[in-house]
Design a binder for these strands. Structure first.
Lengths: 137, 137
DNA sequence: TTCATTGCAAAAGTTTTGCACGTGC
DNA sequence: GCACGTGCAAAACTTTTGCAATGAA
């Protein structure tokens, strides 16, 4: 996504458009690999050596709260980030750790009267095709 | 669950029945609050002051691998544990952090040819009824 | 007996915090 | 200008690791 476009969608939501936030969002938007904070930090640092890790954490948190990114907590360890905010499922391979997107209808929970639901996530885990092939040989 | 019963289901799966593993499982089975490792460690320690934290981590990991417990990674930070291994959804309140169970049909993902799926999780987040009431007043 | 499990301390790693400084609006 | 974001270092946490000692089968 172009920088001007990012600034534009940030301003629509009254989200302060700092260079750090723009760089973080641009990276996650352009790399659909569900990177975690460290990967984002290290990648963003290459073009912007002055950015601090704290700021990347702050930016990611704010971007999630404002709905620009989705936090993926599938591995119980690091948090991964996804710029695809359309509803979809996430699959994690327990062999290689890779996270894949997949299509799945939004699940409809029962007995949640009085609950306000702001986000739904569907996580699968298992073995991905690549690792399945490697394990066969 | 009675200790003898726990030993029995452990042995069925050739899962070594150490006092530590029994105590950890009994605690999680009896407290359906989705505790995390620290809460489990501190609670188990009251009756068994000699147990170490490492062992609690080892036990939880083994219990998950053998299918006695389910790891709940809904908060991206700590891992919570659930002894209810029947399929169900988890709701986390972003205000109080409480995790609730709810009924939901197993989601059916598409386009996962070649993937081996070993676990499915449905996570919701939002505001629980208690916190909704508190926020109204 | 034997090998998996335990326990301790220390390490590794992620995320948070406090506070002074800088900057977008 | 002012509120909010940034940056640094240090702290707080959870989880892992290495290795000797212990105990379940």
């Amino acid at each position: 996504m172009r920088t001007e476009q990012i600034i534009s969608i940030f301003k629509e939501k009254h989200f302060r458009a700092t260079p750090q936030r723009i760089a973080v969002y641009k990276y996650v938007y352009g790399h659909r690999t569900h990177p975690d904070a460290s990967q984002i930090y290290e990648s963003v640092l290459k073009s912007n050596p002055s950015f601090s890790k704290t700021t990347v954490y702050n930016a990611l948190k704010s971007l999630c709260e404002s709905g620009f990114l989705i936090p993926v907590t599938i591995d119980g360890d690091k948090i991964h980030y996804d710029a695809n905010i359309n509803f979809h499922g996430h699959f994690i391979c327990s062999e290689c750790g890779e996270i894949y997107d997949f299509d799945v209808p939004e699940p409809v929970g029962k007995g949640l009267n009085g609950f306000t639901v702001t986000r739904k996530d569907v996580y699968y885990s298992g073995i991905c095709p690549d690792c399945n092939n490697k394990l066969k040989n």
